[in-house]
Each structure stands twice: as C-alpha cells, then as structure tokens.
Lab assay of single mutants.
Amino acid sequence: IINNLKLIREKKKISQSELAALLEVSRQTINGIEKNKYNPSLQLALKIAYYLNTPLEDIFQW
C-alpha cells in the first residue's frame, strides 16, 4: 500500500492529534498508519478521506 496520509495531512495543516480527534482514534493509530505499521479498515480509510476532503485513492493506493 502506498500511503500519502502524512503528506496530505501536513499540506492541510492538520496535526496527528487533530485528525485523531476527528476520527475518534488515538494519535498513535494515525502515527501507525503514516508509518505503514498499521493498515486502516475500509471504514477508517473512508473517514480519513472524508475529513481531509481528499479522494481515497489519492491517500491510499493499493
């Protein structure tokens, strides 16, 4: 999986903590996703895309 979450999140000036709060997950979860240590569920990936107002395929590429 190619993961552009960190790049997109930083472009939008959103911290890991802010995104985690919006998604109701821990900051460690966001960190793990960004470091490719954790693959989000489809539901979480869709929520990330929604809150970042970015197409899912721009954030994650399988």
Rank of each mutant, 00 (worst) to 15 (best):
W62Q: 12
K35L: 14
L44M: 09
K11W: 08
E24A: 14
L52T: 04
E24F: 09
S17Y: 12
L5M: 12
L52Q: 00
I33G: 00
E34Y: 02
N31E: 15
I48V: 06
Q16P: 05
E18K: 12
N4G: 04
D58V: 12
R9E: 01
I1A: 10
N4H: 10
A21L: 10
E24Q: 13
I30W: 03
Y50R: 08
S26Q: 07
F60T: 00
S15N: 05
I14W: 05
S15F: 03
K37H: 14
I59G: 01
L46Y: 10
A20Y: 03
Q43T: 10
L42R: 12
K13Q: 13
T29F: 14
L7C: 13
G32C: 15
I2H: 13
E34N: 03
F60R: 00
Y38F: 15
K11F: 09
K47Q: 09
Y51Q: 09
N53T: 08
K12D: 02
K6I: 05
T54R: 04
Y51P: 02
K12Q: 13
A20E: 01
E34H: 00
Q28N: 14
A20I: 02
A20C: 04
I2Q: 11
A45S: 08
V25R: 02
T54I: 06
N53W: 03
E34P: 01
T54V: 11
K47I: 04
L46N: 14
L56F: 10
L42V: 10
Q28M: 12
E57Y: 09
I33P: 00
N3Y: 02
A21E: 12
K11I: 10
Y51L: 13
A49I: 02
L7T: 14
L19Q: 00
Q16C: 03
K47Y: 03
K37Q: 15
Y51T: 13
K12N: 09
L52K: 01
E57C: 10
S15T: 14
N3D: 02
N4P: 03
Y51R: 06
I33L: 10
A21W: 06
S26L: 01
A21S: 11
I2F: 11
F60I: 03
I8Q: 06
A45L: 06
E34M: 02
K37S: 12
I2A: 11
L22V: 12
L52N: 00
E10V: 09
W62T: 13
V25G: 01
L46A: 07
L52M: 06
A45K: 12
L56Q: 03
I14K: 06
L23F: 01
L5S: 03
A49Q: 04
E18P: 03
K35Y: 10
N3A: 04
A20W: 02
N31C: 10
T54S: 08
F60L: 03
L52C: 03
S41E: 06
S15C: 04
R27D: 12
T29N: 04
W62A: 10
Y38S: 09
K13Y: 10
R27H: 12
N4W: 05
L56T: 04
A20K: 01
N36M: 12
Y51N: 06
Y38K: 12
E57T: 10
S15D: 04
N39K: 15
Q43H: 13
E57P: 07
W62Y: 11
E18H: 11
N36Q: 13
L23W: 02
I59V: 06
S17K: 12
E18V: 09
P40N: 01
E57A: 11
L7N: 13
I30P: 01
P40R: 01
L19T: 00
V25C: 07
K37V: 13
N39F: 11
T54F: 04
Y50C: 10
L44T: 05
L52I: 04
L46V: 10
I14Q: 04
L56D: 03
Q43S: 13
Q28L: 10
K35V: 11
R27P: 15
L5N: 02
E57M: 09
L19D: 00
Q61H: 09
T29L: 15
E10C: 08
V25W: 02
N4F: 06
I59A: 01
I48H: 00
N53I: 04
A49S: 12
S26K: 09
N3P: 03
P40S: 03
I1F: 15
N36E: 08
K37Y: 15
R27S: 14
A49R: 02
N31G: 09
A45E: 01
L56V: 14
A45Y: 04
S15W: 04
I1D: 07
Q61R: 11
Q61N: 11
P55E: 06
I2G: 11
L52F: 05
A49H: 02
F60H: 02
A49T: 04
L46T: 11
L19P: 00
I8S: 04
I59M: 05
N36S: 12
Q16E: 05
E18R: 12
L23A: 12
I33N: 00
I30F: 04
L46M: 14
I59E: 00
K11T: 13
I1L: 12
D58I: 07
E34D: 02
Y38H: 09
E18I: 06
L5F: 03
W62P: 08
N4A: 06
I30K: 01
G32D: 15
K35R: 13
P55V: 05
V25Y: 02
Q43R: 13
S26G: 07
L7Q: 15
Q43P: 13
Q28H: 14
I59S: 00
Y51M: 13
